Simulated assay, not measured.
Amino acid sequence: MNLPNKLTVIRMCMVPVFVLFMLTDIGGDANKWIALVLFCVASFTDFLDGKIARSRNLVTNFGKFMDPLADKLLVCAAMICLIPQGKLAAWIVIVIISREFIISGFRLVASDAGIVIAASYWGKFKTVFQMMMIIVLIADFGGVFDLIGQILIWIALILTVISLIDYIWKNHQVLTEGGM
C-alpha cells in the first residue's frame, strides 16, 4: 500500500476517534480542542494524500474510491455531531448528505458502464468550505466567528447544491447510457 493510500486509511481510522471526542466527555474540557485537532489533521491528510498521489504518479483504484469515501465519512460524521450541539440544523445536514449519496450513486452506475466520474472543482470547493465551516463551528470562538460560521454554513450549502447540479449536468449520460 502506497503512502497516499495509507494516509486515506489513517483518515478513516481517525473518524471514530474524532466522533468519540465530539460526543462524549472522555477528555473533559479538552474534548472540543482534541476533536478540532483531529479534524484538522484528518482534513490535512485529504489534501496531502491527493498531492502526493498526483505528484509521484501514485494514483490507484483504491485511492480513487476510498479517498472520496474517507472525506465523506469525516465531513458527514462531523456535521452529524454538530446537530445535537445546536451548531448545525438537521435539514442542512440532510441536504448535504443527500448530495453525497446521489453523487455516490452516480459514480456506481458510471463505474458499471466503464465511466469514471472525476471530482469537479465545484465538488472540491464544496469540500473545502464544508471543512472550514466545521472547523469554525467546532472551535466556537463566539463573537464575529458566530457570523463567520453562519456565512460558511450557507456557502457550503450553496456549493453543495451547485456541485450536485454540475455533476448531474455534466454526467447526465450516465442515467441514459448507464441502463437506467
Rank of each mutant, 00 (worst) to 15 (best):
M1T: 06
N2Y: 00
L3R: 08
T8D: 07
M12N: 03
M12E: 08
M14I: 12
M14W: 13
V15K: 04
P16H: 00
V17E: 08
V19Q: 03
F21G: 01
M22F: 02
G27I: 13
G28N: 01
G28R: 04
D29W: 08
A30Y: 11
N31K: 04
N31C: 14
W33I: 13
L36W: 03
F39T: 01
F39K: 00
V41P: 09
S43Q: 09
F44N: 11
T45A: 06
L48Y: 02
K51V: 13
A53M: 10
A53L: 09
A53E: 10
A53S: 08
S55F: 10
S55Y: 10
N57S: 13
N57W: 05
F65D: 11
F65P: 04
M66F: 14
A77I: 08
A78S: 08
L82V: 02
I83L: 01
P84L: 00
G86W: 11
K87I: 01
L88N: 00
A89K: 15
A90N: 06
A90M: 11
W91D: 03
V95E: 04
I97D: 09
I97W: 04
R99V: 03
I103N: 00
S104F: 11
S104E: 11
S104H: 01
R107P: 07
R107C: 12
L108V: 03
L108W: 14
V109S: 01
V109E: 01
D112G: 14
A113F: 07
G114N: 04
A119K: 00
S120F: 00
Y121W: 14
G123W: 09
K124S: 06
K126I: 12
T127R: 08
T127C: 15
V128T: 07
F129T: 06
F129V: 08
F129G: 02
Q130F: 07
M132N: 08
M133F: 05
I135H: 03
L137A: 09
I138K: 05
I138E: 03
I138C: 06
A139E: 11
A139P: 09
A139Y: 10
D140S: 06
G142Q: 09
G143C: 08
V144H: 10
F145D: 02
I148V: 14
G149S: 05
Q150P: 05
I151S: 11
L152W: 07
L152H: 05
I153T: 10
W154T: 07
L157W: 02
L159F: 13
L159Y: 05
V161I: 15
I162G: 04
L164E: 10
I165F: 10
D166P: 03
N171L: 04
N171I: 02
H172I: 15
V174H: 05
V174M: 10
L175M: 15
E177N: 13
E177L: 14
G179Y: 01
G179N: 11
G179Q: 07
G179S: 04
G179H: 03
M180D: 12
